[in-house]
Structures are given as structure tokens and as C-alpha cells.
Design a protein around this nucleic acid. Structure first.
Length: 421
DNA sequence: TCTGGGGTCCTAGGACCC
DNA sequence: TCTGGGGTCCTAGGACCC
């Protein structure tokens, strides 16, 4: 049976999460800032209507925020991740096959479901709204790319009431004409420009374009997208996402760092976090890269430098990851520079239960595993985490997050409260 | 003063092999 | 004089996604 893809996408997800627990925000323009309160990563419809642009640095817009009474939030990933789980668990009840595609999107396969896909999707939408408070839009199509396109149109067509079906070919042409080619899933701004100048302005033109021509402009991915627009499915539903190939933990600092000690503390913290993620995935890392950089906007020439270390045996122990990171930072540090960001990347990940042991391995692996498991378990339950001395205690470089809302659903002391009159 | 973070895949080019 | 052809692996960089 051919799949029927339905893409469930949360509307303005981060802004919607903020609104669920704060009724005062109903109907108000909301923006959510990136880590470190840097730039805008989410906007409510009211904020979009004010022409507040996505991706803009927040400091340039403070005046506009004040003028229009925009509600501004630091990002609150604890809240968004938990709300995401609630939405996904709700959606999962509606279809036997589902792929969680991102924090706010999931593909379903509606093949074999007796109801009309549009009617059924409306049911999904209402249930998610009722159970979680999050509004979603649903696009339906015979391929993922068409479901994406349908979803985009569902969001901007008020009469669609949040659900749009592009399964039938009669409706496709008119709909695809309304989508700029750069907005087609997988094309992007660069590809969009190239196609534009080749006389392919919208999704419909791309669907009708010559395959070899598109291959020359965009390579094989462009051809896949073209086939998907024609209704030939190239991207299947991935119910069990393949294991990660790399783990990255990197952050900008809340203030510029000028000392080696602080650069090491911060980078040790990223290494510790990378270790947690690694063990969560039950993997071990063969290679670690560490990088440090100054701001791209520094007046002097920007500095970027990285070092890569191959472990004798794949590593899982935070002590080893941190020690390696500290040594790298020592090599990469340059006095007199104002460091803006650093990062830790783990690569060559392997299953931790199938590590090739080394003849000269001095680490007691069983003991290490017990120690890491214990620490991870303590930190999972909180409220006071165990951390490594190398991470420092002052952490003056920590992210700015001045306007974060409470972690309503994941921290006991931040639960919403109801005041009696 | 203040410009995010975490991922994947593809391609081109070089080294090396037979 | 003749200067092939096919293959693999690796890496860096670019592009995309959310």
C-alpha cells in the first residue's frame, strides 16, 4: 500500500509553548530569543504581522519591542522539549507509523486509515489542541515533499482551517504555483537563486522542469526533490532514526573570555555535557575535536582554531573527555584575544558494548561505567547536579538568559500557581 | 555591550591502488 | 613515441534542515 504522508507541524512552536501557561499572552505579539538572548528564533502570528524578522539580532529591535509591547522571552528548552514529548505522544495515538522529524514536527502514515484524511487530520489537530494547548497544522500528500508543501499552504490559507490535502493531482498544480521555489523542502536560498535564474520560479515550474537540467544545477538532491514533487516518493518514513554520527556541544559565552582558566572551565562544561549525551545514546567516541573562536564581529582579525584527538580506545568517561578538552584548549588559547565561543565535537561513534580493547588500556572500564552511570542517574533526578571541578563554580561566562519563563512542567519549584481571590 | 545551536549529506579533489 | 581507466578512501567545504 502506498503511504499517505501527513506532516503535523506545531504553529510557532516556542511562542505557543509560552502561551499555554500564561493566558495573559493570548492575542499578544511574542518573540523567543536564541541561546544567549542573541537573535529571534520564533515569533507568534501577531509578531509576524508586525514585520519582526526571523533571525535578527535582538539588540537591534529593542526599540520596536517597546513600541509595540512585544512579549520577549529567552529560550526555555526544558519547557519546549517537554511540551514536544506531550505533542508527539498525543499524535502517536492516531497512526501506527510515525517519524518524529524535529522538536515540533512529525510525519505520519495515514495509509489504511478508513476515514477521509482531511477529516481525520482535523480530529488529530483538535485533540492535540485540547490535550496540550498547542495549535498544529497538518499537510497531506503522497510524498514527504508534497506533505511539506501542503503544510506550508495550510498555515497561510485561513479557509483551510489548519489542514490541507495535496493527495489528488488535480489540486496540486494550482497549489504548487503559490510556493516559491526556494521554499520547497530541500531547495533552500542558494538553490532557489540558481533555479530562479534558470527560469524556474516556483514549485510547479520545478515539477515540470527537465531532470537533467535540474541535476546539472542542484545535483542528485535536486532530482530527488523534483521526483517527490511529481508524486514519486524518494524519502520514506523513518520510524527508527539511525544512530547519531556525531555529537556537538557548543555555546557562545555570556561575556567575552580572556583567560585560559575561564576558557577551560567553559569548554570542560561542554565536554561534560557531550559525555552525558554520548552515554545516553549508549555510544563511545573515537575522536574528539575542540574549537575556540573570537567573534566574527571583532575589529581585529577573527581567530578560529581547532584540534582533533583520536582516542587509543573509544571514550565514554567524562574524566577522559574533560582532560582531553582541557589539553586542547591549552594549545588553542592565545593571550590577548577575547574569546566568544567554544565547542566540543565527538565523532567516530561506536556501540559502547563493542569496543575493541587495547593492550595498554589502563582505565578500569567496569568501574568507570559504574561511576558514570551513578552520576548520570543522580543528575537525571536532580535537583542538585553533580559536576566536575574543572567546570568551575563561578561560571561568569554562562549564557545570558535574562527573560526565561518558568520551567512550568519540569521543575517542582517552578510549577504554575493558581492564586485564590 | 549585544549577531544561536545541533545535525546530515553531497561534492570535488587528492592520494593511492591495480 | 606512447601518457589509460577504474576504483576506493579521505578530507574540506558547502549546502540543507530544524
Amino acid at each position: 500500500m502506498n503511504p499517505i504522508f501527513a506532516l503535523v507541524d506545531c504553529n510557532n512552536f516556542y511562542a505557543s509553548c509560552e502561551r499555554v501557561f500564561d493566558p495573559r499572552l493570548k492575542g499578544r505579539p511574542i518573540v523567543v530569543l536564541s541561546n544567549n538572548d542573541g537573535c529571534i528564533v520564533a515569533r507568534s502570528n501577531e509578531a509576524k504581522a508586525l514585520d519582526i524578522p526571523m533571525g535578527q539580532p535582538a539588540f537591534k529591535l529593542e526599540e520596536a519591542f517597546r513600541r509595540h509591547g512585544v512579549e520577549v522571552f529567552s529560550s526555555n528548552y526544558a519547557l519546549y522539549a517537554d511540551m514536544s514529548v506531550r505533542v508527539m505522544e498525543t499524535v502517536a495515538q492516531f497512526a501506527p507509523r510515525m517519524e518524529v522529524y524535529s522538536i515540533d514536527e512529525a510525519f505520519l502514515d495515514l495509509a489504511g486509515i478508513p476515514q477521509d484524511p482531511t477529516v481525520y487530520s482535523r480530529q488529530i489537530r483538535n485533540t492535540v489542541r485540547q490535550w496540550t494547548g498547542i495549535p498544529v497544522s497538518i499537510g497531506i500528500g503522497p510524498t514527504k515533499t508534497l506533505a511539506k508543501a501542503a503544510n506550508r499552504l495550510a498555515k497561510r490559507t485561513p479557509t483551510a482551517d489548519g489542514v490541507l490535502d495535496l493527495s489528488r493531482s488535480e489540486t496540486q498544480a494550482e497549489a504548487l504555483r503559490k510556493i516559491e521555489v526556494a521554499d520547497v523542502w530541500g531547495i533552500g536560498p542558494r538553490g532557489g537563486k540558481k533555479l530562479q535564474s534558470a527560469g524556474i520560479p516556483d514549485a510547479l515550474a520545478l515539477r515540470q522542469a527537465d531532470t537533467d537540467h535540474v541535476r546539472r544545477i542542484l545535483g542528485v538532491n535536486g532530482v530527488r526533490t523534483l521526483l517527490e514533487l511529481q508524486g514519486n516518493s524518494c524519502f520514506g518514513l523513518e520510524e527508527n532514526p539511525p544512530a547519531k554520527k556525531s555529537i556537538i556541544v557548543s555555546r557562545s559565552f555570556g561575556k567575552k573570555i580572556e583567560t585560559l582558566a575561564e576558557l577551560q572551565e567553559a569548554t570542560a562544561t561542554w565536554a561534560a555535557r557531550a559525555g552525558e549525551k554520548l552515554r545516553q545514546e549508549k555510544r563511545a567516541a573515537g575522536v574528539m575535536s575542540v574549537y575556540v573562536m573570537t567573534s566574527r564581529f571583532e575589529e581585529r582579525r577573527p581567530y578560529f582554531n581547532a584540534q582533533t584527538v583520536t582516542f587509543a580506545q573509544p571514550a565514554t568517561d567524562s574524566r577522559e573527555l574533560i582532560a582531553t578538552a582541557l589539553a586542547c584548549v591549552e594549545n588553542l588559547f592565545r593571550p590577548g584575544l577575547r574569546f566568544h565561543k567554544s565547542g566540543v565535537i565527538l565523532q567516530d561513534l561506536v556501540d559502547r558494548d563493542h569496543i575493541q580493547l587495547g593492550l595498554f588500556d589502563r582505565l578500569d572500564r567496569a568501574q568507570s561505567r559504574r561511576l558514570m552511570d551513578t552520576i548520570d542517574r543522580i543528575n537525571l533526578r536532580g535537583p542538585v547536579p553533580v559536576f566536575w571541578a574543572a567546570q568551575g563554580t563561578q561560571q561568569e561566562w554562562r549564557l545570558r538568559s535574562a527573560r526565561r519563563s518558568p520551567r512550568y512542567t519540569t521543575a517542582w519549584n517552578e510549577l504554575p500557581t493558581v492564586r485564590a481571590r
